[in-house]
Amino acid sequence: MIDSAPDLLAHTGHIAQVQGISIGHFTDSRRPTGCTAVLCPEGAVAGVDVRGAAPGTRETDLLHPSNLVQQVHGIMLAGGSAWGLDSATGAVRWLEEQGAGLDIGVGRIPLVPAAVLFDVMMGDMRIRPDAAAGYAACQTAGMQRPAEGSVGAGRGAVIGKVFGHDRAMKGGIGTASFTVDGVTVGAIVACNALGDVYHPYTGQLLAGARTEDGAALLNTRDAVLAGAEPRPVLAGSNTTIGVVATDAQITKAQAHRLAVVAHDGLARAINPVHTMSDGDSLFALGTAQAGKSLGMMTLCTLAAEAVAVATARAILLACAVEIADQPTLPAARDLHS
């Protein structure tokens, strides 16, 4: 029943409740863009699953279960499209200064895979996250609840672009976590989806493509099923990226499976999802600091749940953005108020 559905804004869990994980944002004040550092300086086994057809990523090959490296030391999520991948270099430098990284005898090499989303239509595209931005995000990292909405990697995120950017709405970044028997699984998701975003429990349309007058939600799924023709979309101009983390003891192969199943959370919250114009990518981290595991059935259930809630929170907590010479993009709170 809808009346018994959880209040997503009242959800108190967040990814930094996972032991061994800290989160930091850098939000650029010059235009809507930024980056988000998910740090695990003591190391974590990691996996990744890329479902979108237009991804922008760094060092994902080393996460394959058959490859040598067993642990990473952080994940960088960033705006700025391909240029934003440079923000991971700043995280590598910061982590090296903290003494974190793969011991190679003569020093340490921090391993920081990354994924980016396309936000370069929002203002001056020459302003994008770089190594200095990534370093700054790490400097703010902590284990308190990270800011959500229009911050960090979600600052320039936009959703619901199937019928054009001018009828879209503001995206953002959100987090959630669940704990069972002393083991926590959390997620942080930057939602810049081509599709609409729904309440994962009730199916209520929260935000997305708007009607031609911009005053109400259109419902992309129903419009397409009724024969409405989508506007041409630039490949790679959308993407939902995120990290699922747990303090359970898991193997590298299990981390990969956790990333795979976590995409079920995206499918519960976004429609359409994993399109040819999205670069949807989710990483998974396992810090082992809880000292035990719950079994993969439970971990995967929690992962998908955390991703679904984090995605919806990213939209519910976003704020409208105004840019000179561009249409104002409202947020979910503006249409539901």
Rank of each mutant, 00 (worst) to 15 (best):
A16G: 07
G74R: 06
A308E: 06
T240E: 05
A312D: 03
I250Y: 09
A46S: 13
R30P: 01
D130G: 12
N238M: 08
K252P: 01
L258T: 06
F118S: 07
T301E: 05
G74F: 11
V260F: 09
Q249E: 15
T287I: 12
A44F: 00
I173D: 05
L63Y: 10
T246A: 10
H25Y: 13
D124R: 08
I173F: 04
D222Y: 08
I2S: 07
R313I: 04
D278P: 00
I127Q: 12
R30I: 02
I109T: 09
L329T: 09
L266M: 02
A10V: 14
V261M: 14
V92Q: 11
A131N: 05
V151A: 09
D119R: 11
P146A: 12
T27M: 04
V120S: 15
G291V: 14
T240A: 14
A259F: 13
I127V: 13
A253W: 07
R221D: 15
H11W: 13
L282P: 01
L294W: 02
T220Q: 14
A248Q: 12
C319W: 15
P327R: 15
P230C: 07
D325Y: 11
I127P: 01
R51H: 06
H25F: 12
D280T: 01
G156D: 10
P41N: 05
G242H: 07
T202M: 03
P6R: 05
P330L: 06
I2Q: 14
L218H: 00
L225I: 08
D334E: 12
N271A: 13
A255Q: 14
A259V: 07
G208S: 06
L302F: 02
Q17Y: 05
V116C: 11
G286K: 11
D222K: 12
A157E: 03
D130P: 00
R128E: 03
G295N: 08
L85A: 09
T240Q: 10
E59C: 02
D222S: 15
G172W: 00
M1G: 12
L194V: 11
L299N: 02
D103I: 03
L329R: 10
A262W: 06
A255E: 14
N192T: 06
M296I: 05
D196K: 00
Q204L: 11
G56V: 13
A223I: 06
T328C: 12
V45S: 06
